[in-house]
Amino acid sequence: MRRALAGALGFAVVTGGSGCGNDAARAPGEAQPGAGGGQGGEEQEPSPAPAYTITAFEEVRITSDAGQPNFQQANADIDLRDGPFASVRLVVELESTCYPFETWEDNPPPEGQSWPADCDAFDRNFELSLDDPVDPAADPPGIELVRAITPFGGPLRLEVDITDVANGLPAGKHRLRAVIPTWSDASGQVSGSNGGWNVSAVVEAVPGPAPRKVLAVVPLFNGSQTTAEGPGPLAVEVPEGTVSSRVEYRITGHGGGESGSGCIGPAEEFCRRIHTLFVDGSELARIRPWRTDCAALCTIAHYGPEDGGFDYCLENPCGAIESVRAPRANWCPGSESPPFTWDADALRVPGRHTLAWEISTIAEGGAWRVSATYFAFGE
Rank of each mutant, 00 (worst) to 15 (best):
A267Q: 02
P109C: 11
G208H: 08
L169R: 15
E379R: 13
A326Y: 11
H353G: 04
P317K: 12
E237K: 14
P333G: 05
G172V: 05
G67E: 07
G195A: 15
A4M: 10
G188M: 07
G255I: 05
E358L: 10
I149P: 02
G281E: 06
I54F: 09
T227W: 01
E364W: 02
A372S: 14
C298Y: 03
F85A: 04
C298V: 04
P100Q: 09
I180M: 06
V217C: 05
C332N: 10
C294A: 09
R157A: 07
G208T: 12
P116G: 13
A121K: 10
T354G: 04
H302P: 05
E42C: 08
Y52R: 14
D345R: 15
V60W: 06
T182M: 03
A121T: 14
S184C: 01
V218F: 00
E315F: 05
L314F: 13
G366R: 01
A138C: 02
P141C: 12
D343M: 07
L355S: 00
A228D: 08
F57N: 11
E144A: 07
I287R: 00
S224D: 09
N125F: 04
L355T: 01
T341N: 04
Q39R: 15
G232A: 05
E336S: 15
F377C: 13
G36M: 08
A24V: 13
V146W: 01
E358D: 15
E240L: 06
D139T: 06
C294E: 07
E322Q: 11
V92F: 06
G208M: 10
E204Y: 11
G366E: 04
V214Q: 03
K173V: 10
D131T: 04
E258G: 14
R352W: 00
E283C: 00
F152I: 04
P110L: 12
E229V: 10
R212Y: 04
E237Y: 01
L215C: 10
A171W: 04
T63V: 11
P231S: 09
C298P: 03
G153F: 03
N194Q: 10
L128D: 04
V92M: 13
P209G: 13
A4G: 09
E364A: 14
G230D: 01
W197R: 12
C263R: 05
A367Y: 13
T354Q: 06
F71P: 02
V370I: 14
E364H: 07
A363K: 08
V238A: 03
G223C: 03
L277W: 01
H275C: 03
G281C: 08
A320K: 07
P209T: 15
P155S: 12
C98Y: 10
I300E: 15
D343W: 03
I321Y: 05
T55Y: 03
V218G: 00
